[in-house]
Design a protein around this nucleic acid. Sequence first.
DNA 1: CCTTGTCCCGACCGATCGTTCGGTTACTCT
DNA 2: AGAGTAACCGAACGATCGGTCGGGACAAGG
Lengths: 196, 196
Amino acid sequence: MTTAKRDTYTPESLLAVAVQVFNERGYDGTSMEHLSKAAGISKSSIYHHVAGKEELLRRAVSRALDGLFAILDEEQAREGRAVDRLEHVTRRMVGVLTSELPYVTLLLRVRGNTETERWAMDRRRDFDHRVADLLKAAIAEGDLREDVEARLATRLLFGMINSLVEWFRPDARGADGAEIADAVVQLAFRGLRIED
Amino acid sequence: MTTAKRDTYTPESLLAVAVQVFNERGYDGTSMEHLSKAAGISKSSIYHHVAGKEELLRRAVSRALDGLFAILDEEQAREGRAVDRLEHVTRRMVGVLTSELPYVTLLLRVRGNTETERWAMDRRRDFDHRVADLLKAAIAEGDLREDVEARLATRLLFGMINSLVEWFRPDARGADGAEIADAVVQLAFRGLRIED
DNA sequence: CCTTGTCCCGACCGATCGTTCGGTTACTCT
DNA sequence: AGAGTAACCGAACGATCGGTCGGGACAAGG
């Protein structure tokens, strides 16, 4: 039996409101006053649910990072040819970006001003390196062209995927991002130009 | 005869310092105190050169936008097949991103909290649409695949190019970004995968 | 009824925000 | 030398920052 319906805030439901405001105004541009207006409760009441502004940030980026790292544990990311594993990770990244959009958006925008932000940037860099290794392996296995440097290609691939947070908005009709994942894979692996 | 060497600040030289700090800490995360420390002059002295914090932002994003819009006026962006014009704009965007890196970085990160930021976002959107029209024309002329929607492809292309501000750092040996432009064009137009 | 704990509030804290002001230094021009 | 001005400074402004405090409203359990 899950908790019955309550019209009060939980740390999680408050987080959802906070993350939305963070993304609209930027984390540094958001005051606790802004959050209280958006949540409909007073500024001091927020501190009944969470320890402060930075805990909201930490919860948000943790959620995003957990979603991303979980991809690497999936079977299709661990077994098979590197190029196929890379394509799977690419598709699943688009999936996580769309399903956890506000949290990932916040993660991709932290600047490293606080210890929490630097920790998030470090974990994110770890994830990036893991995917970069996958791309290098795909080149070594002869499935990807080697005239584009692996690190550069990884950065451009991430640039393409991560740009979703700048323009993707969830759709009423259930666009779960599968068609976007197709487009990303098409563009990244086969290119825009028609070869003939 | 240009102005003789001066060890005092001009609005332009102060802007260069300010933009660097803005990019390190984020615009909202940067206080005038931070700027005064970085510039080596007192907080109040900054106001002798510029009207305030927001003018620094306006000057910076204006410079970035002027650089981008100038691309569209170039002959190679106005004449020839759409696909070739698009490739030229792509290469030149990489060039402007690298040569005006800190200014474009700031432009790509504004959130719309002030009138200046919203104006910058509007102008940037105009530019994006101009490039999107180019891509649509290239599809209409039969040079680009039509199984990826034009607007989506434009967004992914921009995502790839704009990601430069997240990782590109100017090199001592004059890497002017030409090799990066090659990589972007290779990836975007021909893809990563080896076709055979 | 009274206690207990959850949820919330207005008032307030010291610190910091962007900005202003009056005044001083130092260079340029005559 | 004296006047004018560009460049700069310390001190302070009102506003807002993130966060604290004591207490009120209210439902549950006895």
